[in-house]
Structure formats: C-alpha cells, structure tokens
Simulated assay, not measured.
Amino acid sequence: MGKWVFFVLGCLVAVTVCAQDAQVEGARKKIQANDFAGAKTDLTKLIDANPRNKLALNLRGQARMGLEDFYGAIGDFNFALELDSTFAEAWNNRGEAKIALGDDESAINDFTKAIKFNAKLVLAYTNRGLAKYDIEDLQGAYQDFSKALDLGPADADKYFNRGVVKAELGEFISAIDDYTKAIELDKTDAGLYNYRGVAYYNTGNLDQAVADYDQAIKLDPKDPLKYENRALAKNAKENFKGALEDFNKAIELDATQAETYNLRGVARFNLEDHDGAIADYTKAIELDETNPVYYDNRALCKTEKEDYAGAVEDYSSSIELYPTDPETYYQRGLVKLSMNNKYDACLDFKKAEELGSTEVKAIIKKNCK
C-alpha cells in the first residue's frame, strides 16, 4: 500500500512540474508578444505557488522591464540569483535593467558574471559592449562587439555596433566595411545608410556620402537629420543651392533646432544672401543664445553689409560667452580698423596675440606702433 501511495504522489509531483513548465513557456510567449502585464500576472501566480522557481522569477523580471519597472525587475533578478548564483541569463538581464537606470559600471560587472558562467552568451558581450560605449571605453566596446560577431550568428545590429565604435575611434574606412556588411544583411534600415554616409563624408568621399543619404531619405523621408547630413555633404561639394534646399526641408520637419538655422545661414552666406543669412543666425540665437558661433557668423554677415557697429556688437556678445578665443578678438579688431578706430582695434589685436594668435603679428606691426 505504501509503495502505491509513493507512486501516486510521484505522479502528482511530475504533473505539477509539467504544468508549471507549460505556464512558464506560456508567459515567455506573452513576453515575446509584448504582453508584459499578462505575463507578469501569470508569473506572479506561479511564484506565489513556488517562490523558488528561478525561471519564473527571471521571466517576471523581464516582464517588469517591459513595463519599465526596472527596480522591480532587479528585485526579481536578485531573488533568482540568490537561488542560483551561476544563472547567466539572470546576470545578463539584471545588467540590462541597470543600463536602463544609467548604472553602466555596475551593469558591466553583471555582464562579466554572465560571461563567466556562460562564455557563449552572445547577448552578454553585446550588452557589455554597449555599457562600455556609454562610459567611453571604446576599445573595450570594440573588443566585446568583435567577440559577439565571432560567436555569431552575424546580423546587421552586430556589424552596426562595431561600425559605430570604429567611427568614434576615427577608423572610418573600417567602419564603412562594417556598415556595408550590415546593409547586406538588412537593406531596409535607413539608419545604416545614414551612418555609412557620415563615414564616407569623413573620408572625403562626398559623392558616395550623398548617395547613401539619398537612400536613407528614400527609406525614411521624415527624419530632418538625414536632410541636414545631405546638406552638409552638398555644401562641402559647393552645391550651395542643393544644400539650401535640404536645410529648408530639415527645418520644415523640425523648426526647433538652432544649429540647423545656423547651418542654413552658412549656405545662404555662401550664396551671398547676407540678409537671409542674418535672419537665420538671428533665429539660431533666439533658440540658443549661449552659442558664441552664432554671434560670430552673424557678425561676419554684418561686416559684409558694412554694418560695422552691428558686427562689433555681435563679436562682443561672442566674447562675453567665450572670452578666451583669440580669433574673435582678431575679427573684432579688423572691424574696428574698418571703422578707423585704430586704438581699440590694437587693443583687440594685442589681446588676440596674448591668447595665442600668430596671424595677428603682422597686422600689429603694421598698425599698432
């Protein structure tokens, strides 16, 4: 009789375990379908019935991350790791939650633990690379992204991540290789073409940069940054009209960016539309009155229009914001010289020399005796 009781109890335990496994898989599928609330509810019932179910705790942590409850998620991952300190997936997931909270240093430690317990956990290398990138450890990020690619399988994101780091390190030709491999794997991602365009721009291959921006805009015609990037490449090709058209489109899509007005002002200046350039620089200053470059650019336009008093005023505003730039003193001195105010001009020239300008020496020798 006792043997039969034991057998029946054993069957009941097996059925219960199987039922729990099915519920865990059901919750996993809900997470994959972005039904995070439903998954959390199901997993909470499972955990209430068995608080030592590490798989359920790990999955509920993921569900909580989907709900942006990162502190709650970390709590679940902590419990899972208390039950099994070698649980690589939980270490990785806790690291992801810490990245979301801006704690990159601690996240790196978690990803390192995940790799210790599962040296082939590709996602942990990728995540650690992202965290290292955030703290500007570019070499470390490069190594982790490379390891993720070595482990495979190759995908566009892995090549893109490494390409971004290579570009940050100034290795633009190698970055182009990675972006190209990413594009071969995913020809529908506008961002890949945009980033490769930036890399081509930095190598001086302006035609290819424009071609990539063309494709990026074709795939995503609502992003102002892509038009701005193409405008910069056209400007570098001295296609100022084409650049102006792209800056116009960028501003049409987003009229809140001071830098875009400033750059359009440069294009208008190159087209000798000084009034239009001044209007753009003025708008840039309205949006961001703390950038000395905008005052310098407007001063240059005013000088071209022989509005010397206005130019001096703008250079003075620039100097208030950035009093250690020798070029601004030099330019203001030139304007004052045009106003026949040689005494004040020489004060500016000498200040420029004091701050390290070498080009000002000849003009001091000629005018400031």
Score class of each variant (00 low, 15 high):
188 T>R: 07
194 N>Y: 12
172 F>C: 02
225 L>R: 06
203 T>W: 12
221 P>R: 08
182 A>D: 07
171 E>P: 02
211 A>Y: 03
188 T>A: 08
196 R>M: 09
219 L>S: 10
208 Q>E: 06
207 D>S: 12
221 P>I: 04
169 L>T: 00
183 I>S: 02
197 G>R: 09
172 F>S: 02
168 E>T: 02
193 Y>M: 13
180 T>W: 00
180 T>C: 02
212 D>T: 03
192 L>A: 09
190 A>S: 15
204 G>A: 10
204 G>V: 08
214 D>K: 01
172 F>V: 02
196 R>E: 10
206 L>W: 07
179 Y>T: 08
222 K>R: 13
189 D>N: 15
182 A>C: 06
168 E>S: 12
215 Q>A: 06
190 A>R: 11
198 V>M: 10
198 V>W: 02
195 Y>Q: 14
207 D>K: 10
228 E>G: 15
190 A>P: 13
214 D>Y: 00
228 E>P: 02
218 K>S: 12
169 L>A: 00
183 I>Y: 02
184 E>V: 00
169 L>V: 00
186 D>T: 08
173 I>Y: 04
212 D>E: 02
205 N>H: 01
216 A>V: 07
226 K>T: 15
184 E>P: 01
207 D>R: 08
209 A>M: 10
182 A>V: 04
221 P>A: 15
190 A>W: 06
201 Y>P: 00
224 P>E: 04
204 G>E: 09
210 V>G: 10
193 Y>R: 14
199 A>R: 11
170 G>R: 09
203 T>A: 12
167 A>R: 13
222 K>A: 14
228 E>R: 14
201 Y>I: 00
177 D>L: 10
218 K>M: 07
210 V>S: 09
176 I>G: 06
214 D>G: 01
170 G>I: 10
185 L>H: 12
190 A>N: 11
191 G>L: 14
173 I>N: 10
190 A>D: 13
199 A>F: 11
169 L>E: 01
209 A>H: 04
226 K>C: 02
171 E>I: 01
222 K>N: 15
188 T>L: 09
213 Y>S: 05
203 T>S: 14
195 Y>I: 05
224 P>A: 08
197 G>C: 12
171 E>R: 11
202 N>H: 06
175 A>S: 15
194 N>L: 07
215 Q>V: 10
218 K>F: 03
225 L>Q: 09
178 D>R: 07
203 T>R: 13
186 D>W: 05
193 Y>C: 15
218 K>V: 06
222 K>G: 09
169 L>M: 09
175 A>I: 10
223 D>N: 15
225 L>W: 03
218 K>R: 12
191 G>A: 13
208 Q>W: 01
192 L>P: 08
222 K>P: 03
198 V>S: 07
220 D>N: 15
191 G>R: 11
221 P>L: 05
224 P>D: 04
202 N>Y: 03
174 S>K: 04
